[in-house]
Simulated scan of single mutants.
Amino acid sequence: MREKVSFTSGGVACAAWYYPGSNGGCVVMTGGFGVTKEPGTDRFAERFSAAGFSVLAFDHRHFGESGGEPRQVARIADQLDDWRAAIAYATTLPDVERVAIWAFSLPGGYIIQLAAEQSGISAAIAQSANVDGPTVTRNASRHQTTAGALRMVGRSILDSLGALVGRPPKLVALSGPPGTVALLNTPDSLDTDKALRPGNQYADWEQTIAARSIFPAAFYRPAKYAPQVRCPLLYVVCDDDQSALSAPTLAAAERTPNSELIRVPGGHYAPFLDAHEQVVETELAFLTRHLLSGKNVPPSAEKLPETAS
């Protein structure tokens, strides 16, 4: 049971799925960088909804069903403003008492910054999060050919210059094998379709991003906000993650007040693949403890599964 809703951010209408809940808790969600709400959130949103939580899963402006021109352009400042607007909108939904935020990959990094600045958030989940753009970019370059890297840099420069004079974006694929011009060429990025659109679902999802979006993402370091986080934050870390890397996230978790951690084997998309049940059950237990504290909840729901650490 979900319904289409929208809210305004920066004068642009952002489209969202709203799953009405019954327990007073609401989870605000988006997909990864360039990933729209359906492939990015459906599997987790459905589980959160089934447990009684309201869910607001939205598309950033310029992507999916949200407005904004030019299309496929991801500006970090704008996307953070979209999050702030979504959180504010969530507090107006019927029977919502407490709000949590959830995202993965680069938007998983947004979670840290937002949790550091938003006093109205009761809990946060950063899943397979990119928390240190420069470190992640250096690692990703190891999986690209020299020719492919030069073509990507050239396209990003040309697109950034074109943006200054209003030219349409030059698009690149979200993922591809080494040698192709893509946002990611890491081995686990090649599992994107398997993880996010099994059975060729979500045929309308355009798996591209503007090349002008890549340089700002490469320098974004949300880990610096970790010591200022104001609410409980669960880090979901994949030990073999080559697209976001586990080491910077583990370091951020150590600097985050009131942090919790679950480590699972596998690459970037392990929470959508083999580790899905372990991760979603841990996230549900975390949400129950921090959004429903003091309510009449089963004692078994007040602890994280033993798989968490």
Rank of each mutant, 00 (worst) to 15 (best):
P257Q: 11
P257L: 09
N258H: 09
N258A: 09
S259Q: 04
S259C: 07
E260R: 15
E260I: 01
E260V: 03
E260P: 00
E260Q: 15
L261A: 01
I262L: 09
I262K: 06
I262N: 07
R263W: 04
R263P: 03
R263M: 12
R263K: 14
R263Y: 01
V264N: 06
V264G: 09
V264H: 04
V264E: 03
P265C: 13
P265I: 11
G266I: 08
G266R: 08
G267Q: 04
G267R: 01
G267K: 02
H268C: 03
H268E: 08
Y269A: 13
Y269E: 07
Y269Q: 07
Y269L: 04
A270V: 07
P271C: 14
P271Q: 08
P271D: 09
P271N: 11
F272N: 12
F272I: 01
L273E: 03
L273N: 09
L273G: 06
L273M: 11
L273W: 02
D274Q: 15
D274F: 02
D274T: 13
A275F: 00
A275C: 11
A275G: 12
A275W: 00
A275E: 02
H276K: 12
H276Y: 08
H276L: 10
E277T: 15
E277L: 12
E277Y: 03
E277D: 15
E277A: 15
Q278R: 15
Q278V: 14
Q278S: 10
Q278M: 13
Q278P: 00
V279Q: 06
V279F: 00
V279G: 05
E281G: 04
E281V: 05
E281L: 07
T282C: 14
E283K: 09
A285L: 07
A285R: 11
A285F: 02
A285P: 00
A285Q: 05
F286K: 10
F286A: 07
L287V: 04
L287I: 05
L287H: 08
L287M: 13
T288Q: 14
T288K: 14
T288E: 12
T288P: 00
T288N: 15
R289I: 04
R289Y: 05
H290P: 01
H290D: 01
H290R: 08
H290F: 10
H290N: 10
L291T: 10
S293Q: 15
S293Y: 13
S293F: 12
G294F: 06
K295V: 01
K295F: 02
K295H: 10
N296M: 06
N296R: 14
N296K: 14
N296I: 06
N296S: 14
N296A: 13
N296P: 00
V297P: 00
V297E: 03
V297F: 04
P298Y: 07
P298F: 09
P298N: 14
P299N: 12
P299F: 05
S300R: 14
S300Y: 01
S300F: 01
